[in-house]
């Protein structure tokens, strides 16, 4: 019984932190630029494939340092891609209706999908966890893989770093000012378009980092983007569009919903997840943590 409970909580946290890793960049870009980037999951997926390619040099025996390096390579590669996407797409979306933003970024998602199929093909690919993280821990009857603990810790670390930067540094204060009043930010001498650019780079780098850190968490296929973008959108909506703290709390909340539904409603995958999102939209359309909706 205690083992079941621990297993449910543990599964909830794996889902939560994997989803938060993907959602963090999405919610950051939305919070500052007010651009809802549908293609975010696509760049997360490409990040995973990039890490896969780096790690394929090591065969089945991957040291932890190489796993981390691969994640950083994926992060840098996607950050660089962010520069191109910002220049070619986001800058042109500044003054158009939100619907066009969704269409344009959905088109980008299709491009990501095509790129993956072209370079890596349609087959399922997989990477094994780093050799230091192949063990399991037994806790009160539950079996906890150390790699899953690594995923959970990764999400927590990314959250703590982002939360610190946004709320405790002068760079974070500038971001908050721009999120609320970009016009006045420019008038007081802040280079707003440069901050926008670095925010997009950071958002994409977070997508790449998530792809790299999670590459051994599930198999790679061109479906990956779609699966994660739905989960991440759920987290961003429930967390109050654009709030990193909100996304973190929402990911844990929806993780619990997912884990409970997987245990008690195994024949209806996803039903409880979407029902919860619908309920939040009806009861608190501004999100659960709306007071901090800009950070």
């Amino acid at each position: 019984m205690a083992g079941d409970l621990i297993t449910i909580l543990f599964n909830a946290m794996i889902w939560a932190m994997a989803t938060f890793l993907v959602a963090s960049g999405l919610t950051l870009v939305f919070g500052i630029l007010h651009v809802l980037n549908f293609s975010h999951g696509g760049f997360f997926m490409i990040g995973g494939y990039v890490a896969y390619t780096v790690l394929s040099m090591f065969g089945a025996d991957i040291p932890l340092w190489a796993y981390l390096v691969a994640a950083i390579v994926a992060s840098v590669a996607m950050g660089g891609t962010g520069v191109a996407v910002d220049t070619l797409v986001f800058r042109r979306l500044k003054s158009v209706d939100g619907v066009y933003v969704l269409i344009a970024t959905y088109a980008l998602l299709l491009v990501c999908d095509g790129v993956v199929k072209l370079i890596w093909g349609l087959n399922y690919l997989s990477v094994s966890p780093p050799r230091e993280l192949l063990d399991v821990i037994f806790l009160g009857g539950a079996i906890l893989p150390t790699f899953s603990i690594f995923v959970i810790l990764s999400g927590v670390v990314v959250f703590l770093v982002l939360d610190y930067v946004l709320n405790r540094t002068s760079a974070g204060r500038i971001l908050q000012v721009i999120a609320i009043d970009p016009w006045m930010a420019g008038v007081v001498g802040i280079n707003v378009s440069s901050v926008y650019r670095w925010t997009v780079i950071t958002g994409f780098a977070l997508a790449g980092l998530a792809g790299g850190l999670l590459v051994a968490n599930q198999s790679l296929s061109p479906d990956l983007a779609g699966i994660f973008i739905l989960q991440a959108f759920g987290v961003v909506i429930v967390g109050g569009m654009g709030s990193v703290r909100g996304a973190f709390v929402a990911s844990i909340f929806l993780g619990l919903v997912e884990a409970l539904s997987a245990t008690y409603l195994p024949n209806y995958p996803g039903v409880l997840f979407f029902a919860t999102i619908a309920l939040v939209l009806i009861v608190r359309p501004e999100g659960l943590l709306s007071r901090q909706a800009t950070t």
């Binding site: 908050q176 006045m184 007081v188």
Partner: peptide, 20 residues
């Protein structure tokens, strides 16, 4: 006026220093 609502007065004034 466009005072930044969530910053303190001291922080608002400090923001102006970006124009130095």
């Amino acid at each position: 006026r466009r005072i930044f609502p969530k910053l303190t007065v001291a922080q608002n004034i400090e923001m102006g220093c970006h124009a130095a």
